[in-house]
């Protein structure tokens, strides 16, 4: 993030509260110039990304993403996935089908895994959203991320954020108790490269570490 944008975020205080700086930086680190983080105040500025929809078809969503509070003005049709990717610069969540059929867009809403492509952004009003960018604790990887590395549970990497978010939820739900159960409860996440063997091994491994930790 450029210094200019950092200042802007601070100016927007009241609309945009960053309780976890890292969460925003994760997305913004790939956004060298544009004010991707919208606040009511940022909207007033001349922005090439301003939404040209009439007021009645737009709405303001107040939500918490990766520990940071956001107030975002959106076209009411916008999906949570497009909000994350196109408006907040959080491109870790992937679009693989846009119809809830592949799992690449999986994020947590209030701790539960959902398909962000089929979730209207309007629905996360007052909710807590966690994306892959908010999973690790600074430089400390989540045990699931480490297990995915250790078991080479990925190839092209495109489905990986969704797999990891689904896998973390799978453990929390109590559905990582056997390889059969993991396979069933991870079937909402297609991996076209075919890394399923490693994914199951990684989840079994991480589940143990998560229980210990």
């Amino acid at each position: 993030m450029s210094d200019e944008n950092s200042r802007e975020c601070q100016h927007s205080e009241g609309f945009l509260v960053l309780s976890r700086r890292s969460a925003l930086l994760a997305g913004a680190s790939v956004v060298p110039t544009a004010p991707f983080v919208r606040s009511a105040k940022a909207q007033d500025a001349v922005s090439p990304l301003a939404l040209p929809v009439s007021a009645e078809h737009s709405l303001t969503v107040r939500t918490n993403i990766n520990g940071g509070a956001f107030e975002i003005n959106l076209d009411a049709r916008t999906s949570l996935l497009d909000m994350l990717r196109e408006h907040l610069g959080l491109a870790g969540s992937k679009k693989g089908c846009d119809h809830g059929q592949c799992g690449a867009c999986t994020v947590h809403v209030d701790g539960r895994r959902v398909a962000s492509c089929l979730t209207l952004a309007a629905k996360v009003e007052g909710r807590e959203v966690t994306t892959i960018e908010g999973l690790s604790d600074g430089d400390r990887l989540h045990p699931m991320q480490q297990a995915f590395i250790d078991h080479d549970a990925l190839q092209c990497g495109y489905c990986t954020p969704g797999q990891i978010m689904a896998a973390v939820a799978c453990v929390h739900e109590g559905n990582a108790t056997s390889s059969e159960r993991i396979r069933e409860y991870m079937s909402g996440n297609i991996c076209r490269c075919g890394a399923y063997v490693g994914i199951v091994a990684a989840i079994q491994d991480a589940a143990e570490r998560m229980e210990r930790g």
């Binding site: 809830g100 799992g103 999986t106 539960r112 895994r113 959902v114 398909a115 089929l118 979730t119 689904a166 939820a169 799978c170 739900e173 559905n175 409860y185 079937s187 909402g188 996440n189």
Partner: peptide, 9 residues
């Protein structure tokens, strides 16, 4: 039915 993601929604 569906996947756990969709069953959560």
């Amino acid at each position: 039915a569906a996947s756990q993601q969709l069953r959560n929604m």
